[in-house]
Nucleic acid binder design. Sequence first.
DNA 1: CCTACTTTGTGATTGTGTTCACATTCACAT
DNA 2: ATGTGAATGTGAACACAATCACAAAGTAGG
Lengths: 213, 213
Amino acid sequence: MITKRVPSETIGRLFRYFRSLSCLLRKGEEIVSSKTLAEVCHIKPATVRKDLSYFGEFGTRGVGYDAASLINKIKKIIKLDKKINVALVGIGNIGRALLKHSTFELEGFKIVMAFDNSPSKIGDTVGNVMIEDAANIRERIESSGIHLVILAVPDYATSKVANVLQLAGAKSILSFSPCGLSMPADIQVTCIDLSVEMARLVYNSCVDYREKV
Amino acid sequence: MITKRVPSETIGRLFRYFRSLSCLLRKGEEIVSSKTLAEVCHIKPATVRKDLSYFGEFGTRGVGYDAASLINKIKKIIKLDKKINVALVGIGNIGRALLKHSTFELEGFKIVMAFDNSPSKIGDTVGNVMIEDAANIRERIESSGIHLVILAVPDYATSKVANVLQLAGAKSILSFSPCGLSMPADIQVTCIDLSVEMARLVYNSCVDYREKV
DNA sequence: CCTACTTTGTGATTGTGTTCACATTCACAT
DNA sequence: ATGTGAATGTGAACACAATCACAAAGTAGG
């Protein structure tokens, strides 16, 4: 397959299509058009079609897409045909919330390992996962073959832990600290920065609307 | 001031500049160049300069930017010269984590009100905030003049609550449910969708690197 | 006051992602 | 068969954001 360059936003949308299609299918809609899917996802039909077209021709002209088979195609594309095992480092407020967050498992992700360095937490079990000593991160992650790690440690510890993760062979990191990570190019990093998001909302609510009127 | 169209990413970066500048200033760096700031933020100097240039000329050629005064300018621009009061709806795992998340307050945001509809939670105090009955959301938010609301309720309740928030006069919503919100254009909505982020990481860690080599 | 050096501010360029608009293809009725 | 209507798939156009590259404006030293 000659992979044209796929916009990175497209991948995120594919996941949302996957979610919406599952939902539509449960409601009994076996055939779905780009129009329907677009409405559910609040985007334009053309975007749906283009996103899918990067990976092949999955629809039938004049008809639409077969929901069940499209779901499978998308699962393959985004590598979610198998459950993804995830490790979590940092069992503070956010870490604990994520461990209890049952939705992940429904969507193909499973937190199978959790670490903290506080003796008072090590050994506890939160949401079916026992908290292990952070000192063992490298060894445990390396031997388990986990590629995706969620990082929810305090800011000052972030880059130190990130380095260990790199040594442990992690391929992707989802971090909740304001990104200060400089990782090699073969390691994917995404930062969730709530303050930044709120700052943008505040700014836009003062400015954006004015323009649209 | 003639406001050219400002990229929305720019606003997010301004907040990060604000953060980094505060840090540099504490370390005693009173004058900061676009190069320095760019290094700290892991972006290019030209981006820093262009971002700032949308709002005026804040630097001195041949020298750089005065950290203290630039911080103030940025604060004004992104409306963070005053603390922003925030309401939180939904005290589940994530909601509770956010209430305890002390960093917000350091960065200019303060959760001053929290709601849930579970009788077992109403009346509890988490992180200095008392949980109120969700039935009072509209009245309380309307009368308090809060514009920014964090939404951390289960998926099925999201759009119902969002409608109430709209009536209550909220201007911006930060939601943790997979976006199904269709709000009028004058209400800003940002969704944090962890599954989507993880799906992108998984995909990219399989594909992206191959191309870069 | 002039020269060498530094760093800003920005028009022009490049790059990336979204949207349009239409030819193509399929189902179905006649 | 053949025509009609519906929905896909996609090159081209557009919109937006990042980056370059250089003129302008400052400092410092003699």
